[in-house]
Structure formats: C-alpha cells, structure tokens
C-alpha cells in the first residue's frame, strides 16, 4: 500500500522531471514547424526537412572531408593555446616584476578582437592549415594566459609556507601546489577559450578555403540551398553543445575538490 504510494509518487516526480526537460523544446520545435509551414518563407525550412537533409548531407563522405578536419583543427589549436597560455601564465604569475613589465602589452593584445587576426595571418602565412591553427591559437591564448596569471597569484600564502616547511619543491611543488591552486581559474580561461576557438575555426574557413565546416555552410547559403544551410547551422550548434558537455564533464572531475570546498563553505 505505502509501497505502491511511494512508487507512484516517484513515478510522478520522474514524469514531472521529464516534462521539465522536454516540454519547452517540443513546444518550440512545434512552433517553428507550424511557422515554416504557414509562412512559406523562402528562408525557413521545416524541422522535418532539416532532419532529413542533415542525414543526407553530413552522414556522407562530407563527414570525413569537411567535418573531421575542421574539428581536428579546432582541437589542435585549442590544445596548443592551452599549453602555451598555462606555461606562460605560470611563469608570469610567479614573477611580479616581469608581470608588471608586460602587463600593458598583454592588456592590449587581449583587447584585440581575435577575428581581425584572420586577415592578418592570411597575409603573413597564406591560406593553409598552419594559418588556421595560428588563428585559433592567437585568439585562444589570452583568456588562458590571463586567468592562469590570476590563479597563480592567488596561491594561498599559508599553503605556500606549508610547502616550504615540508621541503616540497621542484616539479611536485609546481604540479601539486601551483597548478592545482590555479586550476579553477585555468579552467575558467579554457572555457572562454573553447568558445573563441569555435568562432575562429568557422570564420577562418568562411574567409578563404575550399573545404571545412565554415566553408560548406557559406557555400550552401550562396547557392541558396536552404535546408542544407540549416542543417549546417544545426551541425555547428550540435558541435558547440557537444564540446561544452565534454568540457563540463572534464571540469567536474578536475574541480571536484573546488566544488566540494565551496559547498562546504556555503553550509557553514
């Protein structure tokens, strides 16, 4: 009796949860569908059309030719920027005088909107893969660098003294004290960098190449292949969402302690 009640209540709660997640997306898609059928606008496509086209367009050799290289580019640029930004950030974070010296120059470089580097690097390197990687690195490195500097500066002096007392130095000092202390800020910088990396990947391909995700989407738009264009927009959206989910997954693991500390502080 009570058991059945509990089960029923749990089922109801589960049902509510599913409704919370799905209701609004379903309503929005239905509205879109209705609108695209009724309006007969040239630029819209029904969700059904887009879904069909999506399968046809992207689950073909295009996947290997356009999608995989673009994503590879994105990840390579992001990884390089992460390594470069963290390394430089640690060096600058640890030496106050160097930091004071280069700070205004860094502030200026950070303030340059990264996309303007695309035309510049096209001039310097030409239109090729290294150019695209260079664009992504030169745009992504700043948030990582500046956040790492902040994080390294914020190392707790008591913890630093503890390390000195117990003779923790060298590599272990760097990995256990400095990098871990700074990891919340480093992760915040990486998250910003990831968003910038996607933008730069797309526009460096839109600008001047003959393959890649950004190129294909612009191509569809120029040839007025409307459902194909929409499917490309959806694909970019899915890419953004997937990377964001993967990043959140990594972050939850890396910063488990940080969220624990914060939750413990809130409970007090």
């Amino acid at each position: 009796m009570t058991m059945a009640n509990t089960v029923a209540r749990a089922a109801r709660r589960g049902g509510v949860r599913v409704a919370e997640i799905l209701l609004l997306p379903v309503v929005l898609i239905a509205l879109w569908w209705g609108y695209s059928v009724v309006s007969a606008s040239y630029y819209t496509a029904t969700p059904g059309e887009i879904a069909t086209t999506f399968g046809e367009v992207w689950f073909s050799e295009r996947f290997m030719v356009d999608v995989v290289p673009s994503v590879g580019l994105l990840l390579a640029g992001f990884a390089l920027a992460a390594v470069l930004g963290t390394t430089l950030g640690v060096v600058l974070g640890l030496s106050p005088n160097t930091r004071a010296t280069v700070e205004p120059v860094l502030e200026f470089f950070r303030a340059i909107p990264p996309p303007v580097l695309v035309p510049l690097l096209m001039l310097l390197i030409g239109v090729n893969t290294p150019m695209k990687v260079a664009v992504i690195v030169s745009g992504c490195v700043w948030p990582v660098l500046l956040n790492t500097i902040e994080g390294v500066r914020g190392v707790d002096p008591v913890l630093a003294d503890t390390c000195r007392c117990y003779g923790v130095r060298g590599r272990r000092w760097l990995t256990t004290l400095v990098l871990r202390s700074a990891s919340p800020q480093i992760m915040a910088g990486l998250r910003q960098a990831l968003a910038i990396a996607i933008i730069l990947m797309v526009i460096s391909e839109m600008f001047a190449t003959t393959s890649g995700l950004g190129f294909s989407i612009v191509q569809f738009q120029r040839s007025f292949a409307i459902p194909e264009m929409w499917s490309g927009i959806v694909l970019l959206g899915l890419l953004g969402v997937t990377l964001s989910i993967m990043f959140a997954w990594v972050e939850r693991r890396v910063l488990r302690w940080y969220h624990g500390v914060r939750a413990a502080a809130r409970d007090e």
């Binding site: 913890l159 117990y166 923790v168 871990r180």
Partner: peptide, 26 residues
C-alpha cells in the same frame, strides 16, 4: 610546522592520506 589556519594549510585536492604522504614523497 602546524599552522593556525588548518583549512588553508591542507591541500583541498588531496585526500587526507595524500596530504600526510606528500612531504614523505618529497
């Protein structure tokens, strides 16, 4: 040395065992 600020002298990202063991590794 044992500091007054216990919360700040322990490594939040290491377990209790990890904290005690770290100086011994060094």
């Amino acid at each position: 040395v044992v500091f007054q600020e216990y919360g700040r002298s322990l490594f939040s990202w290491l377990t209790v065992r990890g904290n005690v063991e770290l100086p011994l590794k060094e």
